[in-house]
Write a protein that binds this DNA or RNA. Sequence first.
RNA 1: GGCGAGUUGGCGGAGUGGUUACGCAGCGGAUUGCAAAUCCGUGUACAGGAGUUCGAUUCUCCUACUCGCCUCCA
Length: 522
Amino acid sequence: MTNANTETVIRLTNTKTRKKEVFTPIDAQNVRMYVCGPTVYDRAHIGNARPVIVFDVLNRLLRHVYGADHVTYVRNFTDVDDKINAKAAETGRSIRDITDETTQWYLDDMQAVGAMDPDHMPRATEYIDQMITMIEGLIAKKHAYPDGAGHVLFSVNSYPHYGDLSGRNTDDMIAGARVEIADNKLDPMDFVLWKPSDAETPGWDSPWGKGRPGWHIECSAMAEDILWKKPLEAGELSDSALAHPHTFDIHGGGNDLMFPHHENEIAQSCCASGHAEDGAGFANYWLHNEMLQVEGKKMSKSLGNFFTVRDLLEKYQRQFAIDNIGPAIRLRFLQTHYRSPMDVTGQSIEDAAVKLDNWARILESFSVNKSIVSEPNPVILALADDLNTSKAISEMDKLHSFLSEPYLSGTVVSGNNDRSQEILWFNEGFEILGFTLDGINSLRHSVWSEKLKSVSINTDVSKLIEALLEERRKARQDKDWARADELRDAFANSGVAVSDTSDGVSWELMQNFDPSKLEGLL
RNA sequence: GGCGAGUUGGCGGAGUGGUUACGCAGCGGAUUGCAAAUCCGUGUACAGGAGUUCGAUUCUCCUACUCGCCUCCA
């Protein structure tokens, strides 16, 4: 994973051109990616996890292809926002208290679904100075104007390419009659860069009075600072990077951000860097993931199908004693291509857990010989083709059945029985999709079944089960198959699955476990 | 109203102008006292209509439906 594999061709669907394009980084020694992160005012819902998982896989793929030290991944935290202010007012807690707590929750939950931390995780409030500087620059270039009442607005008409990314024009949007007409705007589509704060609202001193930034400016300011200005000052930019000032490779986020957020980011950034006329600069490739549905419906609090990541993690902890169902959530997410709508159901997550268990068994059965020269890995080729995670998982399944065949049947295959290439691919695919054996351990059936026993069975029930098992053992010994089967059926009926193996009898609890049904059988 | 994405077998979900996706479930078989696990085998699906074509699930157009964005939202 650390060696560069730059011969792998990555293709990505670029929202800017609406086409799948070959990805060519500005500087293969430092691939730069920015993804819009969360507003930290509450627990992340499962929809929030989709872009995190999608771009985590992209991050891993880029690191695989260009080398782990040659990718810079930035994902921000929006910690200044009116929703946060409202929550502070509601609860009486300080803003910093809320955002610190929520930020940590987010990191914990995203780690649970196997996402690596980005290289930089800037907080908007740490970049107020940079935002003010950028706004001043925009005013100086006549792309923005103060209204004299503490607001600064971006002038959409000053940027001829406004609407290019999202494919819409301002006239249509205004005709939609959903644009608020305000007195202080030169054009109804103009948006706020800076707004005044009263005594109760958090604010920073600025040339336009005490105030706070609008939503969009933060990403422009942070991307510029972290991906251009700081490396420039540190002398870290290559000639090819220097030849593309203020520009980085990939900008990602959910497609709901395409308009207005990303459109506004582009407008601000291109205008600030002197690219108002040609619309060049800023991000070369724009990636947008589709939205998620729950049980076929849009997730919303009013429909009662609103889940946080934490809700799911806790549900499986409670019901199945699974410490971390996160990897199964991750696999479920990756089974749907990022540009398709995804429907999440409880069943689909449980199916994913079974698949991970099956994969893990194969990994444990083989040792990986990393020294062999690998031909192109079909799993990675699938990922390189516009992050086709669904196809990549199919390739994993194909490798899985190929590897299962000789090993599990115990058959010695004559001739060329060398499967080291396939096991290498399989192992590499497992890693690049973001899974580890340790990470999935708690959701493996044998593991949670054992844990479930310890948490859901009291001593009496435990003794009863053991007595019944002993009863059945005797019946089998006496070849009293009728009695043995009666007991097996009774176990099955009460949610206890009994297996006779060469190592003896083992039993597991199933979802429908009901100890009361075991009573009266002795 | 404007813009965009999509509609594949029981379910999830690839892909292709003429050939098996794959996985899960199901079914048949091997194995097992019976089961479980495992292995082998098995499924002629591409929303509807018109067109292009020797031939379309795959290209074009239309219709229906679903979803998203246009307002905070990942």
